[in-house]
Design a protein around this nucleic acid. Sequence first.
DNA 1: AGCGTGACGAGTA
DNA 2: ATACTCGCCACGC
Length: 128
Amino acid sequence: MSEESLPNDGRPDHADALPEYAERVLEVAELIPPGRVMTYGDVAEWLEEGGPRQVGRVMSLYGGAVPWWRVVRADGVMLPGHELRVLEHYRAEGTPLKEASRAAEGHLPRLDMRRARWDGGERAQGHT
DNA sequence: AGCGTGACGAGTA
DNA sequence: ATACTCGCCACGC
């Protein structure tokens, strides 16, 4: 068909004109239960496509549509510039945070990845 | 085409 | 714990 300016009859299709890859990433992000997190790398691995940086890119562009604070860096460090905001979410959701050692006083807490990391609930890959 | 950059990650010092 | 290197890959200049 003429992919040249489709006549979106009254319905702005471009409203969800996200690349398919981005949609898949956001889809996974929405599956993460409150109180748990998934790393960018885990999401990429889960999708079996792209890599951590691609997932991060999608989140930076379209993350606002999902619980973006549940997709985090593998080292558990909070997103710079949004630390306080995400910290509120984590405390509200009961996401495991790593106790700051005395030496690290003054530093913002980091996520306790060992406990907070969510494996994706074992993909229902079906088929045994 | 090259090159720098980024909501990354793992390894090494 | 910090700093630095590499590998990764899509983008933009």
